[in-house]
Amino acid sequence: MASLNSTHHALETSHPNPSLQVTADHRIKMVEAPVEEPGPGHVLLHIKTTGICGSDIHFWKTGRIGSLVVEGDCILGHEAAGIVLKCGEGVEDLKVGDRVAVEPGVPCERCFLCREGRYNLCDDVQFAGVYPYHGTIQRYKVHPAKWLYKIPNNVSYAEAALLEPLSVVLHGVRTGGLSLGRPALICGAGPIGLLALAAARASGAHPIVITDLEPKRLSFARDYVPSCITYQVDRDLSSEENAAAVRRLFGADEYSAPSTILECTGVESSVVLATFAVRRGGVVCVIGVGKSVMNNLPFMHISLAEIDLRFINRYRDTWPAGLACLSGGTLDVKKLVSHVFPLEKAMEAMDICSDLGNGSIKVQIVDEVAAAVV
């Protein structure tokens, strides 16, 4: 996988390779990036669509997510789909012209976690858009063929780029264990929360409540999944008081309280709300990315109620299932794309995405240039 220290040879192309890079001092810039020759087992892609993720904003604004620190210039982006331009030696399952979705994490495949099939926990993963591994907000990118998936004809590049956040949700649903006819709560109506809402509906969970601070996002949620119930979190109430209000939306008795909660914000107050809203013996699966340390989790409440507090790290073995959901019509993700920008205006796209007041849901960057390799 291409990194800042890559030894791949540069290719001559008929077009430049604009890229959006973040710096160690919390700036973003458009920079011409080299185009690399695909080595054995790799392909050269023309990235057609990349979605902006909250992690991209975190790396820009704060320079880190937990132990992942931006220590130098790095191309952002990991929610991507594109077309194969050139295949390296030994690539047999892909050919030039294939449309593909990109699984951005490349594990070592040698550690005990990889051998167990839990490659999402690999400590040596090379993840696109996380320093020092360059991401997908560029025209040309080299990626291992093994971590690319052919896109069916009825799935667009925009939909295929949403497979990455959908994979997060699929892993969260699998970990949280949504059940047919059982009540569920989704905390957060951002892109991940909205995908979780759609997945919960498809799973047969009922009733489903979704929370957020932003009324525009809750309005979108009602349009996206009309059967859901929305709750605007009250900043003047404690997490426990907000949880009590959420509980009342499900019904008066303990049994009607949500048995599964998918917490999609990572915000401490929302995680606390989830622990108070879930029924005794229920499951809270934290999908969202939060701060390194949370000091106010109600430990004894979680303990005495035997609340099963679970966590996920990205995903594993989700791209085939995600493609099946899209091609089979199980989930409609197209509605989530609220803004589209050309690659050359990637900085403007980041600005729009960084301010929730702009009403964005999913911002995507597209490249319509008919790219080719010489």
Rank of each mutant, 00 (worst) to 15 (best):
11 L>F: 09
60 W>L: 05
318 T>C: 13
63 G>M: 03
71 E>V: 05
127 F>N: 04
233 V>K: 03
199 A>R: 15
119 Y>E: 09
34 P>E: 14
353 C>I: 01
299 F>R: 11
116 E>L: 14
80 A>K: 02
363 V>A: 03
141 K>L: 15
11 L>D: 06
25 D>M: 04
59 F>C: 00
70 V>D: 06
302 I>M: 13
67 S>G: 14
108 C>T: 12
371 A>P: 07
150 K>Q: 14
217 R>A: 02
339 H>E: 15
211 T>D: 03
264 C>K: 05
339 H>W: 12
23 T>Y: 01
102 V>C: 06
331 L>Q: 02
356 L>F: 14
90 G>F: 10
369 V>A: 10
30 M>T: 15
53 C>Y: 05
57 I>P: 08
38 P>E: 00
305 A>M: 13
147 W>K: 07
342 P>W: 02
242 N>M: 07
153 N>Y: 07
251 G>Y: 11
74 C>V: 09
125 V>H: 06
335 K>I: 03
12 E>V: 12
300 M>A: 09
185 L>Q: 00
162 L>V: 03
272 V>T: 15
75 I>N: 10
244 A>N: 10
340 V>T: 13
118 R>A: 07
270 S>V: 15
247 R>Q: 05
287 I>S: 06
223 D>M: 10
71 E>P: 15
191 P>Q: 00
373 V>A: 04
63 G>W: 13
373 V>S: 06
207 P>S: 08
306 E>M: 08
299 F>D: 08
136 T>E: 01
340 V>Y: 08
319 W>H: 11
246 V>A: 01
5 N>Q: 10
243 A>K: 00
306 E>K: 06
222 R>Y: 13
326 L>K: 04
114 C>H: 11
84 V>C: 07
258 P>R: 00
101 A>H: 08
247 R>F: 02
24 A>D: 15
222 R>H: 13
155 V>L: 05
37 E>A: 02
98 D>N: 05
265 T>S: 09
267 V>A: 06
275 T>I: 00
343 L>A: 10
108 C>A: 12
335 K>W: 09
17 N>C: 05
186 I>H: 09
10 A>K: 12
191 P>A: 02
199 A>P: 15
68 L>C: 06
80 A>I: 04
322 G>R: 04
148 L>K: 03
325 C>D: 15
66 G>I: 14
204 G>C: 06
230 T>S: 12
115 R>P: 00
193 G>N: 14
193 G>E: 13
132 P>Y: 00
335 K>N: 14
189 A>T: 05
332 D>L: 01
374 V>D: 11
78 H>N: 05
121 L>S: 11
1 M>D: 04
150 K>H: 15
3 S>Y: 12
146 K>P: 09
3 S>N: 09
335 K>L: 12
98 D>P: 11
271 V>W: 05
183 P>L: 03
363 V>Y: 01
16 P>W: 00
71 E>N: 10
143 H>G: 02
91 V>G: 06
310 R>A: 02
174 R>K: 11
154 N>R: 09
306 E>R: 07
77 G>I: 12
105 G>Q: 10
282 G>W: 01
126 Q>V: 00
144 P>D: 02
175 T>N: 11
195 L>R: 02
353 C>K: 05
197 L>N: 14
28 I>M: 11
79 E>S: 02
315 Y>L: 08
368 E>K: 10
68 L>M: 13
125 V>P: 03
293 V>Y: 13
140 Y>K: 02
257 A>T: 12
198 A>W: 15
358 N>K: 08
